[in-house]
């Protein structure tokens, strides 16, 4: 156990150093902004990973919480002029409350039914963003979201925003690990391995799933908040079905049930379109192929898959040595 703690400690320190290194070392605003997007996506993937990887519950509508976070802060701070930080509190509580109400009946489902239930929820929320145009700006989008400020610090510059986002990611990572190493984390994993068995040993699985659902909704809302104030414009398309699919893809490609997998998945899916820009017309084909190939050959995700290949080759080397 101590060993494990030490390992986690070093990992976190390395993570912090890398963030600081990137933030201070990279000068080009473009790269900083790409990394900011990676940070926002990592938050999304982290939240969904807790739900999918640890609690074993699929959600195909998670972009809804991302959108609820973004729209709540946009409306409160943009239309009503409330401080964005107060809006953040509202955004998160709003997302958590909705997650509670929706999760209560939805999480009783499982398998494809759960997938379809969350998908339906995501679609309905998206249609609301589009149709409630007097409040949300409709499909043309919401204009006029203010910049974030904290006292004398303005987050106008790319670097400040980068640090803001990544500090939030760091906190989220620590929080996730804290939850996972607690009693709740162990109970969660037991659900993943077998819900009936964990029920039998006295785990209140439904309540637990609900809690994690609410937690991941909160992370999604925070990500939405950060996205809204970064781009200062939001429209329903940014929170549609394809975004939900993309979030699931991040988790699955990075590797489920791994905090760093979420980071890897988010980075890959954010960078891939940038790299594929050169292929223009063929981008969709390549993206689809990558998705299929990774899933076919490394269903545990890239983190696990690459580790497997590495271990496999080491084993083979050893055998050759003998």
């Amino acid at each position: 156990m101590d060993d494990n703690k030490k390992k986690q400690w070093t990992e976190n320190t390395i993570f912090l150093v890398v963030i600081l290194g990137c933030g201070l070392g990279v000068d080009n605003t473009y790269y900083l902004q790409i990394m900011t997007f990676i940070g926002i996506n990592t938050l999304l993937a982290l939240g969904l990973n807790m739900l999918m990887g640890y609690a074993g519950q699929v959600s195909l509508g998670h972009a809804a919480f991302y959108g609820i976070g973004a729209y709540t802060t946009a409306i409160l701070s943009g239309t009503y002029g409330i401080s964005p930080w107060a809006a953040l509190v509202c955004a998160v509580s709003c997302a958590v409350f909705i997650a509670f109400v929706v999760g209560l009946p939805t999480l009783k489902l499982s398998g494809y039914y759960l997938g379809m239930g969350t998908l339906g929820f995501g679609m309905i929320v998206n249609i609301l963003f589009r149709e409630w145009s007097t409040v949300t700006g409709g499909s043309s989008g919401f204009v006029g979201i203010p910049m974030l400020e904290a006292g004398p610090v303005s987050f106008m510059s790319g670097r400040n925003y980068f640090f803001l986002v990544w500090m939030v990611v760091l906190v989220a990572v620590l929080l996730c690990r804290r939850i996972l190493s607690s009693r709740m984390g162990r109970a969660l994993r037991s659900i993943h391995d077998g819900e009936n068995a964990s029920l039998a040993v006295g785990v209140n699985t439904h309540f637990l799933k609900l809690q994690i659902f609410m937690f991941s909704a909160a992370l999604g809302a925070v990500a939405g908040f950060l996205y809204a104030h970064f781009v200062m414009f939001i429209s329903p398309e940014s929170f549609g079905f394809m975004v939900s699919v993309k979030m699931v893809t991040m988790v699955v490609i990075g590797g489920m049930a791994s905090v760093w997998g979420a980071l890897l998945g988010a980075s890959l899916l954010t960078l891939l379109p940038e790299v594929l820009h050169g292929f223009a017309e063929y981008e969709m084909i390549i993206f689809g192929l990558i998705l299929m190939v990774v899933m076919i050959f490394m269903p545990q995700g890239l983190t696990r898959g690459l580790l497997d290949i590495y271990e496999h080759s080491r084993k083979r080397d050893k055998r050759h040595g003998n």
Binding site: N28, T29, Y30, Y31, Q33, I34, F37, G141, V231, F233, I234, S235, E237, S238, P273, E274, H277, A280, E283
Partner: peptide, 20 residues
């Protein structure tokens, strides 16, 4: 650059154009 009609992609494209 291609935005694919996606605001997020347009944002990353505009940053690329401005800063890179």
């Amino acid at each position: 650059y291609d935005s694919e009609g996606d605001p997020a992609k347009a944002v990353s494209a505009v940053n690329k154009l401005i800063h890179k």
